[in-house]
Design a protein around this nucleic acid. Structure first.
Lengths: 175, 175
DNA sequence: AAAGATTGAAATCTCAATCTTG
DNA sequence: CAAGATTGAGATTTCAATCTTT
């Protein structure tokens, strides 16, 4: 994923604000700071997963199955929870099954569906990496005090709820 | 990119906290809220760029060249600013040049380097989409009041500066 | 040899089409 | 025909190797 390492300087931002009348420098700077932090975390997480011999996608599926390990999920449910297409899940499950971390069995009630579960090997794998994973997340969030964490959760919720602003039908230019 | 649409419920989080002793539920919940907002924004931004006939990577390169349009940059500088490899930039520039949005000319001082600039067509393209783009970002950030924006910028900076917590050499389990 | 740019192979994810079951 | 799962082609990005210039 592309990561914006260089944010525009204040001078560059001022120059852009004179060229584009609808540019709100405060809003853009806040957005870019947020995106930059996201990108840094994604990149770091990717390295972290690579060191544990897995990938972000594979880990997400395993972690989801590990929430309630006794509960099987269909590929469609997994795709919906993970926010990816069924095609992506098929590929991820192929790899995870080949490594023996998950198992797929045909559904008995509806024979179109599959039942996906962590195998014992899959649970051992997660139990081996999750303690380190959780410690790292605690360290990452450790720079925020209790207030900041509360505020961040509220702000993140607002941003997620407003992300449709980027995809809504275009609004006319205000005058 | 994988997007975590379903966050663990409080009950699932409590169950996990009993199984993994190093799990700090407060830190994990905050991290997940942050990641979920990031993913939602990335997905929405991708749709937004697709509607404008471009992609996140191509837009990032164009926007970088547009900060100071008179200033040419080498592919290496672009790669460094965008946080991707030179190979990725080569591919992006190939596409952008084929569409006539950027131009590459050999450096005169050092003939190993290339000088990349927006073309007139590239500037027209950005001038066509940036007003809408900036309005959307203002709307997205419009749900945050001035205090929240200030706090978000500070928090985002802390998170970006601490992302190495995910990649540092492993720390021993505290006791 | 060192640095800039490019190429080709591999990984990850999406879309459209297809196969199976209901 | 609907829905679940899979397949194959295309887009994006990375890594390792190569070519050119210093």
């Amino acid at each position: 994923m592309l990561i914006l390492r260089d944010l525009p300087s204040d001078a560059e931002m001022r120059g852009l604000a004179t060229r584009y009348r609808d540019l709100d420098p405060e809003a853009i700077a806040t957005f870019l700071a947020f995106i930059r932090a996201s990108c840094e975390v994604f990149h770091a997480a990717e390295s972290h997963f690579t060191r544990h011999g897995t990938s972000c996608g594979r880990f997400t599926v395993l972690a989801l199955l590990n929430r309630e390990p006794e509960l099987a999920r269909s590929p469609s449910q997994i795709a919906s929870s993970c926010g990816v297409t069924r095609a992506t899940i098929t590929g991820l499950l192929d790899g995870l099954e080949a490594d023996g971390l998950i198992g797929r069995v045909r559904g008995t009630a509806d024979r179109r569906t599959l039942q996906v579960r962590l195998t014992a090997k899959g649970r051992r794998f997660l139990d081996g990496m999750l303690p380190d994973h959780f410690r790292r997340l605690s360290t990452l969030m450790g720079s925020l005090d209790a207030d900041e964490r509360t505020v961040l959760r509220r702000i993140a919720g607002k941003i997620a709820d407003n992300s449709h602003a980027l995809t809504d039908p275009p609004t006319p230019r205000p005058r």
